[in-house]
Amino acid sequence: MSAEPAEGTKVPKICIRNLKVFFGNVQSLNNITLDIMRQEILSIIGPAGSGKTTFLRTLNRLNDLSPSFRSEGQVLLDGEDIYHPSYDPVALRKRVSMVFALPVALPMSIYDNVVYGPTLSGAPKKAKLDELVEKSLKAAFLWDEVKDRLKTSALRLSGGQQQRLCLARVLALEPEVILLDEPCSGLDPISTAKIEEALVALKQDYTIVLVTNNSKQAARISDRVAFFLMGELVECGSAIQIFTVPKDTRTADFVTGRFG
């Protein structure tokens, strides 16, 4: 199974086994088997419609919100099947949290955005929340820009700031896995650099899965890269290997820009 016993010591955080995903009669993912390691950034690349986002949303069961969704195979988080009928998706999403392609700041204050997740289950002490807000915003490289206006509406932030706020909001949950769905697609290069800087720093403590349309970004910050095509996992390997000596010709065609 473990096609790549990469980097020796690393332990898989999520094991995906023969995962198939259907929406109604349409199959979106076919037979995905993949291990996602602790403390790594795994980038998922591939052309539009290749199932990258669907795959990502399978990892925290966000696809469940769609009535026609159906899956086969297993997704094991720390060895537990998250699609087991007794598995609680709400608890799962606190451990495996997500940053979306479009920065969606909830229409409330910056502070309230960050504490939204942590205050869902009970109300922690204010001092603890303050501390959490500062810690999360610092980790998302946003603290210095907003520390004096935490109580103003998050909608007044720029797009890049909102996306970092979304990252801070996820960090405040203290999750184990962070999923990012093209987090920089609408951002300027400076905001993108800040997000990338944050992700690399966060790798120490989290497992990060990043869907990106930007091959350069994948090459810059990821440890491993998985190439998806038409709902199938074509190839997964270290970033260097995928971008320099891909095993599959389809991967080669994609990374050299021959299609997609």
């Binding site: 925290n60 966000l62 919100l65 709400v90 608890a91 999403r93 606190k94 949290s97 997500m98 979306f100 479009l102 969606v104 909830l106 229409p107 939204y116 997740g117 869902l120 289950s121 979304c166 909001r169 996820v170 949950l173």
Partner: peptide, 13 residues
């Protein structure tokens, strides 16, 4: 709909 997705993704019921 994005607001709901965000809320769910942050572990809200």
């Amino acid at each position: 709909y994005a607001y709901r997705e965000v809320s769910f993704s942050l572990g809200a019921t």
